[in-house]
Simulated scan of single mutants.
Amino acid sequence: MAARILIAGCSSGVAAEVAKNIALAGVGSLSLLDDALCKSEGAVCNFLIPADADQAQSVAEVSAATLREMNPLVKITALPGSLPPIPDVEFLRGFEVILITSAPFSTLLQYDAACRQLGVAFFMAASCGSTSFFFANLHSHEYSPLDTPAGEVPSKGVSAFPSLASALSQPWKTMRARYTHKLVYVLRVCADFESHAGRFPAAADLPALQERARELAADARVAASADPASAPPPRDLITEDVMPADILEEYVTGTVELPPVNAVLGGVLANEVLKAVSHKGEPVNNFFFFSLGDNVGLVENLGEVV
Rank of each mutant, 00 (worst) to 15 (best):
P104H: 01
Q170E: 15
A136E: 07
S132F: 02
F122D: 01
T148G: 08
I98R: 01
A165W: 08
P201L: 11
F95Y: 15
G129Y: 02
P87Y: 02
G119S: 05
G198M: 10
F122T: 04
Q170V: 07
S132M: 01
E215T: 12
L109C: 08
L146H: 02
L108M: 12
V186L: 02
A213E: 12
D192M: 10
Q210M: 11
R214F: 13
G151P: 05
L164S: 01
H196K: 14
L108W: 08
M124E: 10
D147K: 03
A150I: 11
G94P: 00
F161M: 11
P145N: 11
F133I: 04
T174G: 00
A208Y: 06
F123Q: 04
H139N: 14
M175R: 08
Y185F: 15
Q110D: 09
C115F: 06
P145Y: 14
F135Q: 05
L183E: 10
S163I: 06
Q210S: 10
V120W: 00
R93Q: 14
R176D: 03
L138E: 04
H139R: 15
E215F: 00
K182M: 07
E96K: 08
A126K: 07
D192K: 11
I86G: 02
G198S: 09
G119E: 09
V153E: 13
Q170Y: 00
L164R: 05
D88P: 03
A160S: 15
S106E: 13
P171V: 01
E142K: 15
C115N: 01
R176A: 09
E194Y: 02
G119A: 10
S195M: 11
F105Y: 15
D112R: 03
S127Q: 14
A113P: 01
C128K: 14
M124L: 11
A125I: 08
V120N: 01
T148R: 07
G129S: 05
D147C: 03
Q110H: 09
S163M: 07
C115E: 02
A125G: 09
R212H: 08
M124P: 01
F133Q: 14
E90S: 13
L206D: 07
A203H: 10
F95T: 01
V97G: 00
S144W: 01
E96D: 14
S195A: 15
H139K: 13
R188F: 09
E152P: 00
T131N: 09
H139F: 13
D88N: 15
Q210I: 10
P154W: 09
V186H: 01
C115S: 02
I100K: 04
G129R: 05
L118E: 06
C190E: 06
L118D: 03
R178E: 12
F105A: 11
Q117Y: 03
S132A: 15
S159V: 14
Y185A: 08
S144P: 00
A197W: 04
F200K: 00
R116Y: 00
T107G: 08
L168A: 04
F161S: 06
A213F: 13
P145I: 13
L183K: 05
P85W: 01
Q110W: 03
